[in-house]
Design a protein around this nucleic acid. Structure first.
Length: 570
DNA sequence: GCCGTTTTCGGCCCGACTGTTTTCAGTCG
């Protein structure tokens, strides 16, 4: 198992144990271990190869967890996990996804009302039985009803990061099979959609049997749902479904185009073909019986008199108006990263470590932006500690070569629309990102007031993760994007695409609107550890889904130009 | 479950908020 899969298993175990009323500190130990494993630079299997005791060196991992992690890493199995899974109905675990419900409340619902599924819960809440429970009331009952759809949704789709990783891993092992010529990811994962409902792989193979056998036995696969000559449908242990299709080489482009979608994009494609007296399907583009294109995607688009359209744009959201090939931003275009944390607040890396991590990720400049004091749980900084932190950053950057470092702050926009730090402190910052963390459920007028107040503050350079959403688990704040974007444009405030795959906020649609208004976008990692910069890729693909080019993204500028942009906007 | 001892147990990050209570448990980040 990969590190993030091990981390997911440990997190699931923690959830289950918590529901079973296990000691909270024991549960925390599992969660801490999950985080530790997730942020390791090397795969656990590699560490174990180097030394069988390597895991014991890690903070927060003792004999017991080391043994469990090593079992997960080498066999993908953990008896304890299977055991507790059998004790808790899956529907009960899903209830944890309902905002406002934690393990205690869910356990009460499960035990007292015998609700085992989200449907059970909905029925109980509708009947008013939830409000009668001790510790529950009318408001809780109402918020449960509102949150159920969110939880149900979360169960059906997975984050793009989870989807891409599983798909790439399986594609890699299929590529090693004798006779397999080519394997590619298709579907929403190829379009880098925020979430994926299932995975699609496409292969060229002399003999489909060997490829399908390999897939059946893959450690990530739990069961084969269906298997035919050219198509195999499996379910992964993580609950995601995956389709593998084996196609002949001459049809590969057509199949790739077809199975990449989206459905809406393909409807238009087939209509355009029809208008030219052609027929498009997964086998090729045909005039009568004769195949006129289909070995590669480019030939299909070209025959339809279209430039090749990057997968991220294939949503029928205006991509057919493209006259010429569009040169979307690439991951390598980013030179800076303007949002990250250190051990001063809730990060895992020191200032020096984050600088080195950024350098290793190929970045030329960064801003260190720890939390302001309102985020007490993260040990947020007040004016005194922040100034001290900046002094420390300043002395370190004096000695640092090859990468520029800005003294920044991620400053909370408080519930009353004031900022968490006084103006005279913000004025000393090189870079200020203002964000909403609390009070996301306030009425739209209040959210608007808060965002506009932040934008109008002369020291604020950027609004970070504007909606505060966590995909699948926390709904976005209700934002009037029209006034919000207009204000950002008027006051020269940049907007962030937060690259954390659970955020991707601004979303693709609002990012496209920001581009139209020529509001500079910055794509930031929001790193909390030295390997956190890898997520920038997800932010870049989100930007690509919005049609952004290098010129639309401010942190593709060199440092001097970026610095000038900040100065000009202030 | 981990860790570090005043070394085999006792503590483990915490402040604010919400909705429930009538002094606080649970949730959030």
């Amino acid at each position: 198992m990969s590190n993030s899969q091990i981390a997911a298993a440990l997190t699931e175990l923690a959830d289950l144990l918590e529901l079973l009323g296990e000691n909270a500190f024991r549960v925390r130990a599992y969660r801490n271990a999950a985080r530790t494993i997730e942020s390791l630079p090397d795969e656990v299997t590699l560490l174990l190869d180097q030394s069988p005791h390597a895991l014991l060196e890690l903070e927060g991992i003792g004999k017991d967890l080391a043994q469990k992690i090593s079992s997960l890493a080498t066999t993908g199995q953990l008896d304890q996990l299977d055991e507790v899974r059998s004790q808790v109905p899956p529907g009960v675990v899903q209830m944890l996804k309902i905002p406002g419900l934690g393990p205690k409340k869910v356990a009460t619902l499960w035990k007292e009302l015998q609700v085992n599924t989200l449907d059970d819960l909905q029925a109980a809440a509708t009947a008013g039985r939830v409000a009668e429970l001790k510790g529950f009331g009318k408001k809780t009952e109402q918020s449960i009803l509102e949150g159920i759809s969110l939880a149900a949704e979360a169960g059906r789709r997975v984050l793009i990061s989870i989807a891409r990783e599983a798909a790439e891993q399986i594609a890699q092992s299929l590529r090693k099979v004798a006779g397999v010529e080519r394997v590619e990811i298709a579907g929403s994962a190829r379009r880098w959609k925020e979430t994926c409902g299932d995975l699609d792989l496409l292969a060229i193979a002399a003999d489909s049997t060997t490829a399908m056998d390999e897939l059946s036995q893959h450690p990530l696969v739990s069961q084969v749902v269906a298997r035919g000559e050219t198509k195999q449908h499996v379910r992964l242990k993580s609950g995601i479904d995956l389709d593998l299709r084996v196609v002949p080489p001459e049809s590969f482009g057509a199949a790739w185009q077809y199975f990449t979608g989206s459905k809406e994009h393909n409807v238009v494609m087939r209509r355009l073909a029809q208008e030219k007296g052609l027929k498009l399907n997964e086998y090729g583009l045909f005039r009568g019986e004769e195949m006129v294109a289909g070995t590669d995607e480019e030939s299909i688009y070209k025959t339809l008199e279209l430039p090749w359209i990057p997968p991220e744009l294939r949503e029928n959201r205006g991509e057919f108006h493209l006259q010429a090939p569009i040169d979307l931003i690439q991951p390598g275009d980013l030179q800076g990263d303007l949002h990250m944390h250190t051990t001063a607040t809730d990060g895992a890396g020191s200032i020096e470590e984050m600088i080195e991590g950024a350098r290793a990720a190929g970045l030329k400049y960064i801003a260190i932006t720890d939390h302001s004091k309102r985020v007490a749980m993260a040990n947020g900084l007040d004016s005194v500690r922040l100034r001290e932190h900046w002094r420390k950053i300043d002395s370190i950057r004096q000695k640092t070569r090859g990468i520029e470092v800005l003294c920044g702050i991620e400053c909370d926009i408080l519930e009353d629309a004031t900022l968490d730090l006084p103006d005279d402190v913000l004025a000393e910052a090189d870079w200020v990102i203002a964000v909403l963390h609390y009070g996301l459920r306030q009425p739209a007028e209040m959210i608007e007031k808060r965002l506009l107040a932040a934008i109008q503050n002369p020291h604020v350079d950027c609004i970070g993760h504007p909606s505060g959403r966590l995909i699948g688990s926390r709904a976005p704040a209700e934002i009037n994007y029209h006034t919000f974007l207009k204000a950002a444009q008027d006051y020269g405030v940049m907007l962030e695409i937060n690259a954390n795959p659970a955020r991707l906020d601004l979303n693709d649609i609002q990012s496209a609107r920001a581009k139209e208004l020529r509001i500079p976008i910055v794509i930031n990692s929001d790193s909390h550890h030295i390997h956190g910069f890898q997520v920038l890729e997800y932010g870049v693909h989100q930007a690509r889904r919005a049609g952004l080019t290098k010129a639309d993204v401010a942190n593709t500028l060199d440092f001097a130009s970026f610095r000038n942009l900040i100065r000009r906007n202030r």
